[in-house]
């Protein structure tokens, strides 16, 4: 598999990363290198092998339905670049 410049531009856009046209060839080369490396996995024969979804415990542990968290607005807002009273704020987004 290999990515063309248009696909690299699209991936960047979906990830909301602004990139310079001049950076495209380098990024394309790097991404293709990563994909090529991972594609080596295709050489492994996995016929008749159940997909493995994790290690250790086979299933999700569940918790009881009780309120144990929240009420920590200061902590929640502590890393926000901008706030207004009790709210996070972001540059206006209107569809």
């Amino acid at each position: 598999m290999s990515l063309d410049p248009a696909t690299v531009r699209r991936i960047a856009r979906l990830a909301r990363i602004g990139i310079d046209e001049s950076d495209l060839p380098a990024l394309q080369r790097e991404l293709n290198g990563i994909l090529g490396w991972i594609e080596q996995l295709n050489e492994v024969d996995i016929d008749n092998v159940e997909p493995m979804v994790g290690t250790g415990h086979a299933a999700l542990r569940m918790r009881e339905d009780v309120v144990t968290d929240g009420d920590a607005r200061e902590a929640v807002l502590s890393n926000a670049p901008d706030t207004a009273g009790p709210y996070y704020t972001v540059p206006k987004v209107v569809e």
């Binding site: 918790r63 339905d65 309120v67 929240g70 929640v76 009790p86």
Partner: peptide, 25 residues
Amino acid sequence: ISQSKLFSGASASYGGEPNTHVSLV
């Protein structure tokens, strides 16, 4: 309808003060 959220222990009830029914998750 539940007391707390799907993946965190914050309250799922309606109408709290803004950003008070929020965990770090």
